[in-house]
Write a protein that binds this DNA or RNA. Sequence first.
DNA 1: TAGATAATTAGCTAATTGTCTATTCATGAG
DNA 2: CTCATGAATAGACAATTAGCTAATTATCTA
Lengths: 107, 107
Amino acid sequence: MSTVFKALSDPTRRRVLELLREGPQSAGALAAHFNVSKPTMSAHFSVLKEADLVEAVRQGKTILYHLKLSVLEDALLGFARVFGLGETAPPPAIKKNSENKKEDPVS
Amino acid sequence: MSTVFKALSDPTRRRVLELLREGPQSAGALAAHFNVSKPTMSAHFSVLKEADLVEAVRQGKTILYHLKLSVLEDALLGFARVFGLGETAPPPAIKKNSENKKEDPVS
DNA sequence: TAGATAATTAGCTAATTGTCTATTCATGAG
DNA sequence: CTCATGAATAGACAATTAGCTAATTATCTA
């Protein structure tokens, strides 16, 4: 969980994930979108792998990165659900019923 | 955005937010839940404030921290939406109707 | 077996982070 | 005004991070 949010805390890495949303891409192809060195990108990929947000698959002499959407989903929505967010879908019965105000009109 | 995810990348800070979910609490009351010094907690609160995830309100000689749920929601669900996640709930009229695949069967 | 290419690892620096103790600041009570 | 209390700031330190250049590894092709 910490590793996922840590990975998401860097704009470059968030952008990489967004690029990967449209399908697997090689390290080089991804790096081409950014103004940093290849080794630096490699380090970013490493952080994303560590967080299990991407998977690296060797394909000949290139390495393809795949987005692991379900891991992202579990982290983002799982944590959101703790706060009763995004629960227009599955509302899991909050114990204390006096807190689920999103905007407090009474103050 | 980065500041929010950075704030969420620490377990202590995530826990603070969870504690705040049940209502505002003083710095001291929050600190009592953790095994670190008060100044360390103060630094964590500072990061949460920086990310605009909490609001500090002086109340006599204590300081009450309030959770800013909407900011958390915007970050978590907003980013999730970029990936087509969590769209079972508020589908805000997508322009291109060919992208709302959560899993792409055609590849 | 080379040579070329894609990507990672090694080694470095500067900046940031999480933690501590000691100190200061702000407030309410005598 | 002075004291006690709740909390933040100051200053120090080890660990981590993002970035770089240079070197290494892995793979394909000739």
